Amino acid sequence: MNSSPSTSRNISQWPQQKRPREKLLSQGAAALSDAELLAIFLGCGSRGQTAVDLGRHLLNICGGLRQLLGRTVPLPPTRGLGQAKRCRLYAVLELARRCTADEFKREATLRSPADTAQFLRGRLASYPYEVFACVFLDARNRVIAFEELFRGTIDGTSVHPREVVRACLRHNAAAVILAHNHPSGVAEPSESDRLVTAELRQILGLIGVRVLDHFVVGADTHVSLAQRGLI
Rank of each mutant, 00 (worst) to 15 (best):
R166C: 07
E130L: 06
V92E: 09
L89F: 13
V73K: 04
G70W: 03
S126V: 13
G156S: 05
R162G: 05
N141F: 15
N172M: 08
L65Y: 07
A139T: 13
R66I: 04
L69T: 09
S112T: 15
H171V: 03
S112V: 04
V73Y: 07
V165F: 05
K85Y: 03
A125D: 07
C87H: 11
F119S: 09
E107G: 13
L110I: 15
S112A: 11
R71D: 04
A96G: 03
A117L: 07
E163F: 14
L124N: 01
K85R: 15
V131S: 01
R170A: 15
T72Y: 01
A117V: 02
L81S: 06
G70C: 08
E103S: 08
G70H: 02
R66G: 11
E147W: 00
G63R: 03
C168V: 07
G70N: 05
G82P: 08
E148S: 10
G152E: 07
L89S: 10
C62F: 02
T100E: 15
T109V: 14
G55F: 09
F104V: 00
Q67H: 09
R140P: 00
L58H: 08
A114H: 11
H57E: 12
P76C: 09
A173Q: 04
K105I: 15
R97N: 06
D102G: 05
P74G: 03
R166Y: 10
E163M: 11
K105V: 13
T72A: 04
T116Y: 02
F132K: 00
N141T: 10
L59P: 11
C62R: 09
H160Q: 10
L149S: 01
V135C: 04
V159R: 02
C168Y: 03
A84E: 10
A96S: 11
A133Y: 06
A108E: 13
E130T: 14
V131W: 02
P128K: 00
R71A: 10
S158D: 11
N141W: 08
A84N: 06
V135Q: 01
A101I: 02
Y129D: 11
G70S: 14
L68A: 02
L69N: 05
E103W: 07
T78E: 10
P77M: 03
I61R: 00
R121C: 15
S126I: 06
Q118P: 00
A173Y: 04
L124S: 01
G55E: 02
I61Q: 10
S112D: 14
Q118N: 14
R142F: 05
F132Y: 15
G70A: 15
G64M: 04
F119Q: 08
A174G: 15
R88H: 13
T72V: 15
L59E: 12
L75M: 07
C134L: 08
G55I: 07
H171P: 01
H57Y: 13
C168S: 13
L110Y: 05
L120K: 04
T153D: 12
R88E: 03
T78H: 06
L58K: 03
R66V: 07
F136N: 00
